[in-house]
Amino acid sequence: MKTVTLEIDGKKIEAKGGMTLLEAARELGIEIPTLCYQEQLAPYGACRLCSVEIIKGERSRVVAACVYPVEEGLIVKTDSPRVVSIRRMLIEFMLAVAPRTKVIEDLAARYGVEGTRFEAEANLCILCGLCVRYCAEVKKANAIGFVGRGISRQVAFLPEIASKTCMSCRECFSLCPTAKIPRETDGVCFLDLTVDDFLSRQSK
């Protein structure tokens, strides 16, 4: 792949084609916050914390740095007011879902978010998918997965598989940014969050 030249926060960089904006920024020592990103996993682009503003000619738009590839002549702003207000709102969303968790409180402190305007619906899971993706991509066990869609989407263990594989692994415990997994599961299933629980709740 040939190299391309672009500008991130006023700094010029020559990057290898196919690289993401996040990788290029990190090479420059520019820190973009992430949550669902993990070097050993395929980029996922779900938490959008790494949103940055890109300018191409006259047009500017917001993209996720973890999945957007570098492009010749691109101007990238990783800390513009538009980007910061997006991150602040995302943090408010996460504070409602996962209050009093270190990772999110740290983010809130960094962006000066003092609290959330939204009602707490604390179930701790922000659906970053690290557990599901790690279990599938690295461990190839597929003991945990997503179920449902939209605002009903959640993660759930599959007891049939988890009972055979999880007790000896537990590697997702430390990956979980809100510590939901170590707090709420024995590794075989969430206390009330297996696939079967999900289904029985749906049919009642």
Binding site: A136, N142, R149, I161
Partner: peptide
Amino acid sequence: IPLNQIYHIATFYTAFSLT
């Protein structure tokens, strides 16, 4: 196909009922 992927699909689309 891993069962978790099948469950994801089965609970994603409205045409399917798991009960």
